[in-house]
């Protein structure tokens, strides 16, 4: 059961539907411009320019948002041991299957989300989640997937898939999952 993936996919569908309807979508793949705020004492900070909105890629043969969402929904969540970002046999098997989806659909770009269980600080878990997402991204890259098709986001312990407070819940929450980009 991967209820969170389905939720993520549904959310992604909604985002893409909005984007298709002409709403501006934040370009998550573009690094923000150099910051220009001025937090020195006595000076009012000036706003950094917001990230320019760019429409989703519309190259010929591109996947529709619904197709991308369906493909990502079929990708397997990867689980991790406590305080670890190493990929065990089960994780590698799941990622091999996911890599096939990415290879077979060259126009599919994804966000790799790193997640943690609730133990430890927000800040440490944020770094741990990034490690997990990066480990997955690197595994895909080693399997021949272009780096440009993947971005990582760490949610640390902020987005548990199981709200419980026991070993079973924590095991489900130490994970990397995927959303279409």
């Amino acid at each position: 059961m991967r209820p969170t993936i389905r939720l993520t996919a549904i959310a992604a569908c909604a985002v893409f539907a909005l984007a298709a309807a002409g709403c501006a979508k934040k370009a998550v793949q573009t690094p923000p411009p150099p910051p220009t705020s001025t937090p020195d004492a006595g000076t009012v900070p000036t706003p950094a320019p917001t990230t320019p909105a760019t429409p989703p890629a519309t190259t010929p043969g591109a996947l529709t948002p619904a197709e991308a969402a369906a493909l990502v929904r079929g990708m397997q969540t990867v689980y991790f041991a406590l305080d670890s970002w190493s990929l065990d046999d089960g994780a590698r098997a799941a990622l091999d299957a996911n890599a096939r989806v990415l290879r077979d659909n060259a126009s599919l770009s994804i966000t790799v989300e790193g997640h943690c269980d609730e133990r430890g600080t927000v800040e440490y878990n944020q770094a741990l989640g990034e490690k997990r997402a990066e480990a997955v991204k690197q595994y895909f890259a080693d399997a021949g997937i272009a780096m440009s098709r993947m971005v990582t986001v760490s949610y640390g312990k902020e987005r548990p898939s199981d709200e419980g407070h026991d070993d079973a819940a924590w095991a489900k929450n130490r994970r990397a999952e995927f959303s279409p980009r």
Binding site: S37, P39, P45, P47
Partner: peptide
């Protein structure tokens, strides 16, 4: 004044 300004939005963590 409660207006947020971006200080660092580099790829990955900015925390």
């Amino acid at each position: 004044d409660r207006r947020p300004f971006l200080v660092s939005g580099r790829p990955g963590l900015n925390t």
